[in-house]
């Protein structure tokens, strides 16, 4: 960035600080509410550990799926131009603005036992509802747009100069993709993956609607927090802090990835 020397208008700090306080104060409130003397035992109960492990595992798999499908999607959206592209892009990004519960219902009507694909899958002996697969599908559904958006942005800013040069020198499309395109957008890919992971980690509405809630199988950390709140608010707050810490670590990683660009 070259605009370092241009000063900011002073008044701009007022809304900036207010905005930051608005985001930070609730975090402070959570930390203040934590029962530190029992913190260890609250977050190491079997149910908490199961939820934590399940959340990390499913979020990692969902992020992998977002990379596998999101990178090609972003490439098509950024590099090709065809009628209806704008409509397709809006539809693909729909999970960004859709309430997750609606996403969960849509998945239920698609992959559920009586859904669009469900009867076919059922005949093939594949049952998705109430399994960990359903959790992964729900997370991938809500997280995929984050990957597509950040990668498409990186691809557009990067431009096509080097790809054109490589192609004119005789490189095949796959070689250009592997040797030129991918390495150039690594920062965008990393921040997209981190956003997708963070979104998967926090996924709640689609999971509870589509996958159900059973310890060790479908009850991820957000669902466990929601349930604990019923009887043991202290445990819910402790777990919430764990989730916040993981999220902060992940976002910190994303910041580093961007810094090395």
């Amino acid at each position: 960035m070259s605009d370092r020397t241009v000063g900011l208008p002073r008044w701009i700090y007022v809304p900036a600080v207010l905005g930051a306080a608005f985001v930070l104060l609730p975090l402070v409130a959570i930390v203040a509410k934590v029962d530190w003397t029992h913190f260890g035992s609250l977050i190491t109960s079997q149910a908490s550990r199961d939820a934590f492990v399940l959340s990390l595992k499913t979020s990692a798999i969902s992020t992998g799926l977002c990379v596998v499908f999101g990178v090609p999607m972003a490439l098509v959206l950024a590099r090709r131009d065809f009628p209806g592209l704008a409509v397709i892009r809006s539809l693909v990004l729909l999970p960004l603005v859709l309430p997750p519960v609606v996403g969960g219902l849509a998945l239920l009507y698609t992959f559920g036992r009586r859904g669009l694909l469900g009867s076919t899958l059922d005949a093939a002996g594949i049952q998705i509802a109430f399994t960990t697969i359903a959790v992964v599908l729900a997370q991938t559904f809500v997280a995929l747009p984050f990957m597509v958006v950040s990668l498409e942005g990186a691809l557009r800013t990067g431009g096509q100069r080097y790809e054109v040069a490589a192609a004119s020198l005789g490189a095949r499309p796959t070689t250009v993709f592997r040797r030129i395109t991918l390495p150039l957008v690594v920062p965008g890919l990393i921040s997209g993956a981190v956003l997708a992971f963070a979104r998967s980690l926090g996924e709640f509405g689609a999971t509870i609607t589509f996958a159900g809630s059973l310890q060790g199988r479908t009850r991820t950390l957000p669902l466990e927090i929601y349930l604990q709140r019923e009887t043991d608010p202290d445990a819910a707050v402790a777990l919430a802090l764990v989730l916040v810490v993981v999220a902060v670590l992940v976002i910190g990683l994303a910041g580093q990835g961007r810094g090395t660009r």
Partner: peptide, 21 residues
């Protein structure tokens, strides 16, 4: 041996009326 332990009665009903359970 439930396949899911839901947070509320409405969630249970949703799983049943949709035919999932």
């Amino acid at each position: 041996k439930p396949v899911s332990e839901e947070e509320s009665v409405t969630d249970v009903l949703g799983k049943v009326s949709s035919g999932e359970a």
